[in-house]
Every structure is written in C-alpha cells, then in structure tokens.
Amino acid sequence: MTATLIDGKTIATGIRDQVATDAAALREAGWPPALVSVSVGDTAAAALYVRNQKRSAEACGLQFQERNFPDTISLEQLIGVLQGLNADPRVNGIIIQRPLPAHIPVKALQKAVHPLKDVEGMHPASIGNIVYNDLALGPCTAVAAVEMLKTLPLQIEGLDVVVIGHSEIVGKPIAFLMMGLGATVTVCHHMTRQVAVHSRRADAVFVAVGKPGLVTGAMLKPGAALIDIGINRVDGRTVGDADFDSCAEVAGWLTPVPGGVGPVTVATLLSNAVKATRMQMDHYRSAYAAE
C-alpha cells in the first residue's frame, strides 16, 4: 500500500471541537442550539443513525429531540408538523430520517423545512445557493467530502477533478463546490462513455454511486486523491465504491470505508446546526429589534 489514508475520524473531531465552542457561545447569548429528528413508522432501519446523531449532538452541547409519527400519518399532516417546527424559535434544525413510507415523498418534506432550519442542506434553496458560490447550509455529505480534500497538501485552484455520480445531493453539489474553489471539474454518470478515460487524468476523484468495486487502481492517475463516498454491504462488511486494495497501490491519498467520509458527514450536520442557530439569531434580532 502506498496511499496515505485520510482519517475521517480525526477531521471530524476537529469539526466537533469547533461546534462545541460555538454552541457554548450561542447558549451564553440565549440561543441554545436544538435539533429535532422526525421519523415516520417503523424506525428500526434509522435507529442506529438517530442514536449516533443524538450522542454526537449532546456531546457537543446541542439539544436533540426525537419525534416519531405512525406510518398512517398523511403527507399533509406531516407537512403541518414541519410548519409548526419552522415557526418554533426553540427549534433550530430539523432532520428528516429515512426511510419513509411510500406515500411520503422525501422531496416534499425537504421542501417544507424552512431554509434557515435546513441543517441537512437538502432544501432546493440550500442546494441552489451553491450555484452562486454561497455556501450557507450545504448538503452534509457533499460538504464533508470537499472538506476532506481541502485538508490535503494540494492547490485546489486549477486542480483537475472528476466526480463519478451526479445525484442532486452529493455528486452535483460536489461539482459546484469544487468549481467555486477554482477546480476544473468533469462529472461522470451512468451514460458516460469510458469513465476511466476521465478518471485517469484527474488529480482528485470523488465517487458516490453505490456500486462496490466500481473504481479500481487502473482507473487512477498515480498519486491522485480518491474520496470514496459509497456505502455498500458486501458479505457482511461495509465497503465503498472503490476497490480499496488496488486503489491503495496507486492513489496518493485515499479515504477508508468505514471511517472516512461518514464521521465527517455527521460532524458537518452538527456544524450546520450551529450555523443555522446563528443565522436565526441574527434574523430575529434584525427583524424584531427595537428602533
């Protein structure tokens, strides 16, 4: 193995330390950051994520509430719940847990969360702002992946970057974030001919497709950085979208799975929570301050 592992746990620790400092300052100002998790129906599939979010939030001094609703709730009723949370100044961030019942489209809920409380960065306004290079509350996984690349001794301006995968909440935001930093970006997807032709000339490759072993060492430029965002279960193990062993022989830097982008994503959610709280505090002060 020649690649240097990009330790997501260490990067996440640094982010959480800053979150704890910021949360303490907000509590001192009378604005204790508070998150609300919203889940629907049988929560077994999301229970581990919720426990991790709660533990991480409370360790940083953030309040965390869990609200679960029966799978018989209608979309209209659930949107009403979100509108109530939007209007409650004691709630600073809203997390929509997945999976959801078939009759509850996740995009409808993401649109119903107020942009100032969109700590997951999934509202169309949050994603759209990235096009204007205005990163307020960005999609957590995309922001985390880019932050990991920024920790490397690479000059981002002019960097040749390939993004494999063009989802609305990961691939596309990464592409715009990297362009905003001055990189030259190519986006590959399921209709791209000869992905390897693009990836072999890249200084950095992001992959987020959900297909284990998709990227191999033969597809990489020697010394390139590889940010593997994929999460797959293979023979009882959690693996990414990259064939780790072959990529580790070629890449200069490589994220492990698990222990790479995942911990930084959770830390980014918490960072978004304190940003959202600060934005709301500023909004209320400007809107309701005495003349």
Rank of each mutant, 00 (worst) to 15 (best):
V215M: 14
M191E: 13
F244R: 12
R98I: 11
I227M: 12
G165C: 03
D160A: 07
H114F: 12
H190T: 13
I164L: 15
D134H: 09
V161N: 00
A175T: 12
L220K: 05
N133C: 03
L177I: 05
K111N: 14
P222L: 07
G210F: 07
V209Q: 06
G223K: 04
M179Q: 11
A175L: 08
T151R: 10
H190Q: 01
D241A: 06
V209D: 11
A136V: 11
D228A: 04
K221R: 15
I104C: 12
L100D: 07
I130T: 04
T141W: 02
E120N: 07
D235Y: 00
A145M: 00
I174M: 14
L177T: 01
V209I: 08
V119S: 01
V239K: 02
C140K: 00
I156H: 00
R98S: 15
L116N: 10
P124F: 06
Q97P: 04
G165D: 07
G158W: 13
L149M: 05
V234H: 11
P212T: 12
Q155V: 09
Q155D: 14
G210H: 08
I96F: 11
N129H: 13
K107H: 09
V197L: 10
V113R: 06
A125P: 03
P153D: 09
V185P: 07
I96E: 08
V207Y: 00
V146N: 09
G217Q: 03
P101F: 14
L220N: 08
R200N: 04
M122I: 00
L154V: 14
R201V: 14
T184W: 05
L181I: 04
G171H: 10
G182A: 05
V215C: 06
G223A: 01
K117I: 12
A175M: 06
V106W: 05
V106E: 15
L109F: 09
A136N: 09
R237M: 11
A224G: 05
L181H: 11
A242P: 04
R193P: 05
P101A: 13
L181F: 11
D243Y: 02
M191R: 15
H166K: 06
F176I: 00
V207G: 00
N232G: 14
K211L: 13
K211W: 01
P105I: 13
I229F: 04
P173T: 02
P115E: 09
Q110V: 00
R233F: 06
R98V: 15
T184M: 07
R193F: 07
H123L: 10
Q194D: 15
V106Y: 01
Q155S: 14
R233M: 06
H189S: 13
S199I: 01
T238P: 02
V163T: 06
D160M: 01
A196Q: 11
T141E: 02
V113A: 14
M122K: 08
A108I: 04
H103P: 13
L159S: 07
